[in-house]
Amino acid sequence: MTLRELFTSQSVELSLKAETKDEVLKELIELLGLDSKSEGILFKTLKRRENLGSTGIGKGIAIPHCRSLVVNELRLAYGRKPEGLDFQAIDDAPVHNFFLIVAPPLEVSNQYLPVLGKIAQFAKDPDIPDVLAGLESPEDFLKLLEDRAP
């Protein structure tokens, strides 16, 4: 399965409103379209993962991720904050691009780790931050995945 197949235009937001780390996590979770109880549980789990160490991998990119009982299948979302915000990334630079990955505790297809690896690899491509900054619509993002993350 390609990364493109795991995103929909509804799970992409190019103008995040969040101003803090907590707010950005909540806004990303909302892109998954879960019920409010599930959103609350997922937020706590993502926060606990962030407490172990930031998922900001540097160069303006963060990949918040976890396994949680609240999803039945692997779910992904992408959010962009053009102005950037402090996410305690490993290079201490503001983060502009957020890839959320949530997987159920057990998956038959076991896609979670390969997908996490693919996103990390995709995000580390030197020109990707600039390309992401130039996206004008969710469809542009999906096209980028088609072209650059087979």
């Binding site: 549980i41 706590k44 789990t45 606990r48 993962r49 172990l52 976890c66 396994r67 949680s68 009982l69 609240v70 505790p105």
Partner: peptide, 10 residues
């Protein structure tokens, strides 16, 4: 319990 479950998975 749900939080514990998710932390155990982690």
């Amino acid at each position: 319990l749900l939080e514990i479950q998710d932390m155990r998975a982690q």
